[in-house]
Design a protein around this nucleic acid. Structure first.
Length: 927
RNA sequence: GCCCAGGUGGCGGAAUUGGUAGACGCGCUGGUCUCAAACACCAGUGGUAGCAAUACCGUGUCGGUUCGAUCCCGACCCUGGGUACCA
């Protein structure tokens, strides 16, 4: 019988579906295991070869755990809201729901043909109202909760209001924005609007003014990514920074718990490090600087209050609220121009460009609260309004960036810390700032002579005693801006009454996304939902027109999989008590500081209010590497409808443009296909080299916008799903990034055919019930051991190598006994489920191979009584020597030294040391 | 700029991380089978020198620690990801 993968795969996929082989229910007789993939966002391009990489890995592990007797939850769904469907809708007028539905169908059929063990009865889609009902529900909960620092948990707003009524604002220790304190009496006399404004400073979901990239021409807000040099990437319209009222989530309240929680989870150190840096905890002090001639104070945060005496200037972010007020008349024009310029630059641009030093003196002076010294106040765009207080005290002697700024503008530099073993220096001669992490304080009044650590403590005590500052912990983490001026997202369950926001009743959920005539913003720059007819409550109050961001729907989806059809609740207590949390989560590292932080926050909140039963949602996380695309480029001559070949591009002034890799073969462009693909330049001239148009190439992220997407369908048709699954795993370690290349899939295909041949003779399934020989048994058990160990450490590429090696050995031994071949089928099953299932049934088994038992390995078969040692001289391997296990070190030394091959290396030299590492190496050191 | 990761033959990678560098596979070379091809099978394959045994060189670059470094330390170069409204 020939190996006909198409028939085999189709047949078993049908049977698995009909028998619901992958459907799971809570089963208290078995331990649970929850394997989760980051669900895909269904794009027009379909699934590309990078998507399945993670899914194959998780599927292997899910199947493996099932073979080990676990009740495995392995669900899948779709992150269906987002920009791409909306952009497409703006261009074509097609409703995003239509596009999304179509894309999901395509994804589903692509996933199905790969033979994944997903329980599709649990599918969720973020754009489904029965799903987003619970996203909206969670938002309402966030709105009605605040964070109690003393209890370190979220509590109902009701409790806060009670406290205000009894004791005013000072009785609680809450995560909140700054506001003036008030008494219980004052609270009671406030209007509803005033009370609402106060509560906004506490709610975990709140309205506030935040900075955005505003593009007036497009009437929309843009991501930093969409802004290039102050212009929109799309259309090239000017963009400016602007304040806008937005919903935010007070994720900063959870900063400390997000940080601490990292210690308890099994994630890679690099990912934890990224999150740690993102949260960016720093311990220091808040200090109030006076301003000459003004009543206001400038609050700065510093990690080094001990260097206060070294402060020779201050810097405000251009957006700082005091800039306008303190800039003096003569400096005003210069200041305004600078602020105008800064507005046009994105935060990232402002931080990236450190070579060009820029800034403007305000003409105003701050007062150092410790010594009363006057220090100039500058404006510079390297200070960002979003970090700390948007103002810094600059200590040029001990900070590199401040140093460069001071040198550039000729501002004095005062040394205040002397590093250990050094003498105080002349700062005029310095080329850079001096490290100050450790050392002795000078030029600093009452802390002179103290060590840095003690000085910090002393200064903070002094600041607090004088009421000019206090100890403070600052986090780089910012609250998550939660509103988007877009159509294709969850509507907020919020309406406005006299300008005060209220949430809908839970029983009014879901608030369905309304129909609109167009998907772009209105002429007045209002979000698309403003176009919806009757977008108001039954009582006629206007509903919120913003929608939620992409991460809203993906923040809690793993919980909904536990009980996806529950209409009464997010999920039942029974379901969550059984499934608990995700044991293994597989997805891309590009989510490190986005989704993976938001989801942890979301889960902690649900934990606080008694829904989640585990504080951390994802116990173990694996980041599958990105399969990178190989992009191709054409070179268009600027201001001319002409393209030049790669080798000639430097002779012209050209722009590099992506070209669809599917019309490029071996970097040679199919010019006719290109004309069809880009009708806008259909009549272009092509400058060739050697009669060909050669394209440039680069390895980049695979994405539709780079036209380098490869999809798996053709490969499944040509080689079958089992081969594709194993080939993707064989490419390299799951966590490594690798460029996609189809060369090499033939080798895996050969292996699958070889494996099939193990069980067949003269085209007939032919396996005997006789005892297998020792060699075959040894091969099998070495394989069981290695494959088991390697699956446990997610080293799937070496699993496949091992299976190849064992298959070659068994073929060589002409092993055809059930005793060795049947366990091989089970070992292969997680990787290549279709062929394994077919062979499993050829053996006469009834049930599915997924319910088989992972074979046990017999250690006694693998015991060796000697070891072949590599013998090195001065670290260089020279020959090998077989040594019995029970031989003594002295005897081994003698055997080595008397070995004929050793003479060449020891002749005329003196033995310094004889190193013997059991089961590793022998090294002879001679001189 | 900042944070994180990576760099090993012609190519993907292995060496479970201080102990034989290059497992397994692709590709390539030669051969068997065939009228021929495909499939399959056999042999070889890091570089240099050599008929060979063997020797020297070799894990991005430079330097260090060690009996011994792909692995640890320092400096640098290059590539990829993230950088808060792409998902």
């Amino acid at each position: 019988m020939e190996y006909n993968f198409t028939n085999i795969e189709k047949k078993w996929q049908k049977i698995w579906k009909a028998n619901q082989v992958y459907k799971v229910t809570e089963d208290n007789s078995k331990p649970k295991y929850y394997v989760l993939d980051m669900f895909p966002s269904p794009s027009v391009a379909g699934l590309h070869v990078g998507h399945p990489l993670g899914y194959i890995a998780s599927d292997i592990y899910a199947r493996y755990k099932r073979l080990r007797g676990f009740n495995v939850l392995h669900p899948m769904g779709f992150d269906a809201y987002g920009l791409p469907a909306e952009q497409y809708a703006i261009q074509t007028g097609t409703h995003p729901a239509t596009t999304t539905e179509k894309n999901i169908k395509r994804y589903r059929s692509q996933l199905d043909q790969l033979g994944f063990s997903f329980d599709w009865s649990r599918e969720v889609r973020t754009c489904d109202s029965q799903y987003y009902k619970w996203t909206q529900w969670t938002f309402i909960q966030l709105f009605h909760h605040w964070y109690d620092q003393s209890q370190q948990k979220a509590r109902p707003i009701k409790a806060l209001v009670d406290s205000f009524e009894k004791q005013g604002s000072d009785a609680v220790d809450a995560a909140r924005d700054e506001h003036e304190p008030f008494s219980a009496e004052a609270w009671k006399q406030m209007s509803e609007k005033q009370q609402s404004d106060i509560l906004m400073h506490y709610r975990l979901a709140y309205l506030s003014e935040t900075m955005v990239n505003w593009c007036p021409a497009l009437g929309t807000v843009l991501a930093n990514d969409e802004v290039k040099d102050g212009y929109s990437e799309r259309g090239g319209h000017p963009v400016e920074r602007k304040r806008m009222q937005q919903w935010s989530l007070r994720i900063t309240a959870y900063a400390e718990r997000l940080l601490k929680g990292l210690e308890k989870i099994d994630w890679s150190d690099s990912l934890k490090e990224m999150q740690k840096n993102w949260i960016g905890k720093s311990v220091g002090a808040s200090v109030d600087f006076g301003i000459e001639g003004h009543d206001e104070k400038i609050e700065v945060f510093t990690t080094r209050p001990d260097t206060l005496w070294g402060t020779t200037f201050m810097v405000l972010a251009p957006e700082h609220k005091l800039v306008e007020k303190i800039t003096t008349g003569e400096k005003k024009p210069e200041g305004d121009a600078y602020i105008e310029k800064a507005k046009k630059r994105s935060e990232r641009e402002r931080q990236a460009e450190t070579k060009a030093i820029s800034g403007v003196f305000t003409g105003a002076y701050g007062i150092n609260p410790l010594n009363g010294k006057k220090i100039p106040i500058w404006i510079a765009d390297y200070v960002l309004s979003g970090y700390g207080t948007g103002a810094i005290m600059a200590v040029p002697a001990h900070d590199s960036r401040d140093f460069k700024f001071a040198r550039h503008f000729d501002i004095p530099i005062i040394q205040v810390v002397v590093p250990k073993g050094e003498q105080p220096g002349n700062t005029d001669e310095w080329e850079d700032s001096k490290d100050s992490t450790e050392g002795t304080i000078i030029n600093s009044d009452f802390i002179n002579g103290m060590k840095v650590k003690d000085a910090i403590r002393k200064v903070i005590d002094y600041l607090e005693a004088q009421n000019i500052g206090h100890a403070k912990v600052n986090y780089k983490l910012r609250d998550a801006i939660f509103s988007r001026q877009r159509y294709w997202g969850e509507p907020f369950p919020v309406f406005y009454k006299n300008g005060v926001p209220y949430t809908l009743d839970i029983n009014q959920l879901p608030l369905n996304l309304p129909e609109v005539d167009k998907y772009q913003p209105t002429e007045y720059g209002k979000p698309p939902l403003a176009r919806a007819e009757n977008w108001k409550t039954e009582d006629g109050y206007p509903l919120e027109t913003n929608t939620m961001p992409g991460f809203a729907g993906s923040s809690g989806y793993y919980l909904r999989y536990m009980d996806p059809h529950n209409e009464e609740r997010y999920f039942s207590a029974e379901a969550v008590n059984y499934w608990q949390d995700v044991d293994l989560y597989i997805g891309g590292a590009e989510h490190a500081t986005g989704h993976l932080i938001y989801a942890r926050f979301w889960n902690k909140f649900l934990y606080d209010i008694g829904l989640s039963v585990k504080e951390e949602p994802f116990k173990k996380l694996i980041n599958q590497g990105m399969i990178q695309g190989r992009s191709n480029f054409v070179y268009k001559v600027k201001n001319d409808n002409k393209f030049v070949s790669h080798g000639l591009r430097n002779q012209y002034d050209t722009i590099k443009q992506h070209v669809n890799v599917n019309i490029v073969n071996n970097d040679i462009l199919d010019v006719e296909a290109f004309r069809k693909w880009r009708p806008d330049v259909g009549d272009a001239e092509f400058v060739l080299e050697d009669d060909n148009y050669i394209c440039g190439w680069e390895v980049e992220k695979m994405s539709k916008s780079k036209y380098n997407v490869q999809n798996p369908d053709d490969l499944v048709e040509q080689y079958g799903a089992d081969t594709l699954r194993m080939y993707e795993m064989f490419l390299g370690p799951i966590e490594a990034h690798k460029p996609w290349d189809t060369n090499g899939i033939e080798g895996v295909f050969r292996f699958v055919k070889k494996f099939w041949r193990l069980f067949h003779q003269d085209n007939r399934f032919s396996v005997s019930d006789e005892k297998a020989d020792e060699k075959s048994n040894k091969s099998l058990h070495a394989c069981i051991k290695k494959v088991g160990e390697d699956i446990e450490r997610f080293s799937f590429n070496t699993c496949i190598s091992t299976l190849m090696i064992t298959t070659n050995e068994l073929l060589e031994h002409k092993a055809a006994q059930r005793e060795v071949l049947e366990p091989m089928v089970i070992l292969l099953a997680p990787f290549a489920p279709h062929i394994a299932e077919e062979l499993w049934h050829l053996f006469g088994n009834d049930g599915s191979v997924v319910d088989a038992e992972f074979p046990a390995f017999n250690p006694s078969l693998l015991v060796e009584n000697s070891f072949e040692y590599p013998v090195s001289f001065n670290g260089k391997m020279r020959f090998k020597l077989d040594v019995p296990n029970d031989m003594k070190k002295e005897d081994i030394q003698e055997a080595v030294m008397n070995h004929p091959k050793a003479q060449k290396w020891i002749e005329g030299k003196q033995l310094i040391k004889f190193i013997f590492v059991p089961k590793k190496i022998i090294n002879v050191v001679v001189k």
